[in-house]
Computed example of a mutant assay.
Amino acid sequence: MKANRMEAFSDGVLAIIITIMVLELKVPEGHEWHSLVSLAPKLLSYLFSFIYVGIYWNNHHHLLHAVHTMNGKLMWLNMLLLFWLSLVPFSTAWIGESHFAPTPTALYGIVLLLASVSYWLLQRAILGQHPSDSAILAAMGKDFKGKISPLIYLLAIVTAYLNAWVSCFFFALVAVLWFVPDKRIERVLLRKAN
């Protein structure tokens, strides 16, 4: 199996996740702009989740270019990542329905935390295929974003019980950190191609 097959499967799963999320948005009863006000929590939770799924899709695409050899370990770690991401529509719907109540907001953070840990494990396994002096490992550096993100998610989980909007600030902070796709791998591959 080649990495492009795993990437295609992952792309399909992520497309389904986005489709499920948008199908959770129900049309309001009224026909005026103010009818959308009651949907604001659902629209906000959808926006957060859409951005997160997009971030994972972008970074996953870049990461898979570093695969040397596809193996069962990588496939199962990828499935673990997809499992946690597949729970995003459920947690998105719950925080939207509950208007960001503490427990649904904390669960949303737990799902995002476990997805980030899964991504980190997949990244470590892929980078483990490279020699210690490789350009890819040097480019990845200390991986500040990868290390700080789980800590911010933990803060979001804890603060969900104190103030859900502070928790949302932490979710937004991680999204801002990762919004621009991680180009470190791409730069190394471009240098090798030239």
Rank of each mutant, 00 (worst) to 15 (best):
T92H: 05
V117T: 10
I17L: 01
I110H: 03
S49H: 04
F144D: 01
E29C: 02
I95K: 04
H68Y: 05
F50H: 04
A138E: 15
A8D: 05
L137I: 10
L82K: 06
T92A: 09
L112P: 02
K42R: 15
L77H: 10
L44C: 14
Y108E: 08
S86D: 04
K147A: 10
L77R: 15
A115T: 06
L127P: 05
A106Y: 05
I110P: 02
P28C: 01
H65W: 14
L81H: 07
L113N: 06
G96V: 10
H60N: 12
L127E: 12
L114S: 02
S132R: 06
P131V: 08
N78P: 09
S98P: 10
M79S: 13
L14E: 00
Y108S: 09
H31R: 08
A106P: 07
K73R: 14
P104A: 03
L47R: 06
I16K: 15
V27M: 15
M21E: 06
L25M: 09
G12Y: 07
L63F: 03
E32Q: 13
F90V: 12
L39M: 09
S91F: 11
L113I: 13
R124G: 03
H34I: 13
I136T: 01
A66C: 08
H99V: 05
H130C: 00
L114I: 12
N59L: 12
N71M: 11
L25A: 05
L39Y: 00
I16H: 13
V22R: 06
T69G: 04
A3V: 09
A15V: 08
L43V: 15
A139G: 03
L85V: 02
E7N: 09
N58P: 05
A8T: 14
V53K: 03
L39I: 03
W76P: 04
V117E: 06
L113S: 08
K73C: 09
E7G: 11
K26E: 13
M140P: 00
L121Q: 14
S134P: 00
A115R: 07
R5I: 01
L137G: 03
